[in-house]
Design a protein around this nucleic acid. Structure first.
Length: 252
DNA sequence: TCATTAATCGCAC
DNA sequence: GTGCGATTAATGA
């Protein structure tokens, strides 16, 4: 479908972009920058970005590192997490192409409170803080879209508090599955992303073992099917029903 | 292929 | 519900 230009850039020329990643040809129509490209007056803004690639498993935002800008995912998938006590990581959210990473540190914060790791080979667009600030001040539509994004994120984060504190493990795992399904969709009956049981656990706020137990229970009930890392949802409606009685299901 | 890593299950707490 | 450890399956060098 989209055979993007994936040239390997030598480290020496990494700063100079030798493949076309300009916003003009970008296919992420949900990207806030792409969507507002027509409204953005300063043409320099969209071209004044850097592009970096990271391999699967590579961390590109370190917790505590100073914030100098904001990442957009041009291609790939990413998990955002916060490290808790005894090194346990809590996955805050997942993100796919077109989405923003590191936005919480934007504005006043000096340092990132989160870390981000690529779940597969990922290409990122990086906008400097100053350039973005400029663009936001000069483009109401862009600023408005950003505000909507922030509001949405806040809503999701608030409902997640309830999720973790009031739902049973089974419900939390189901909710996580639905979230992944909403975000990444499925391909040939399987969720279009490969996550370890550990990662499901870190998102649902439980342990790997619990996820495995819930998965096998769901498999027995024919609600999902799982082959290794490939998870398929067989009956999404039944899954939704299980958690809808708790009224915690929110589209996010 | 073999070695490493992840998934699963059983069991004690 | 949680955590540990052994077994088995999957992955990758």
């Amino acid at each position: 479908m989209h055979t993007n230009i994936v040239h390997t850039v030598s480290t020496a020329t990494r700063k100079r972009i030798s493949f076309d990643v300009s916003c003009r040809v970008c296919e992420n129509h949900s990207c806030l920058v792409k969507k507002n490209l027509g409204n953005i007056e300063s043409k320099e803004f969209a071209s004044n970005k850097s592009n970096l690639r990271c391999k699967k498993g590579q961390q590109f935002i370190m917790e505590g590192a100073p914030v100098n800008g904001l990442f957009f995912i041009q291609k790939g998938k990413v998990k955002v997490f916060r490290t808790g006590i005894n090194g346990r990581e809590q996955i805050v959210r997942f993100a796919k192409a077109g989405e923003i990473i590191g936005h919480r540190g934007f504005g006043t914060a000096e340092c990132y409170s989160i870390g981000a790791i690529a779940l597969e080979d990922t290409s990122l667009c990086y906008f400097s803080k100053d350039g973005l600030q400029d663009a936001l001040l000069n483009n109401p539509k862009l600023a408005y879209d950003f505000m909507l994004f922030y509001a949405n994120e806040l809503n999701r984060s608030e409902s997640k508090v309830k999720l973790i504190s009031q739902m049973t493990v089974r419900e939390r795992v189901i909710d996580s599955l639905l979230y992944i399904h909403r975000k990444f969709g499925s391909n040939k009956g399987f969720l279009d992303i490969s996550l370890s049981r550990r990662e499901y656990a870190d998102y649902a706020g439980t342990t790997e073992e619990q996820v495995i137990r819930v998965f096998s229970a769901l498999k027995k009930d024919n609600l999902i099917n799982a082959k290794g890392k490939k998870i398929g949802i067989t009956d999404i409606q039944l899954l939704k029903n299980e958690i809808s009685e708790h009224n915690f299901y929110l589209d996010s």
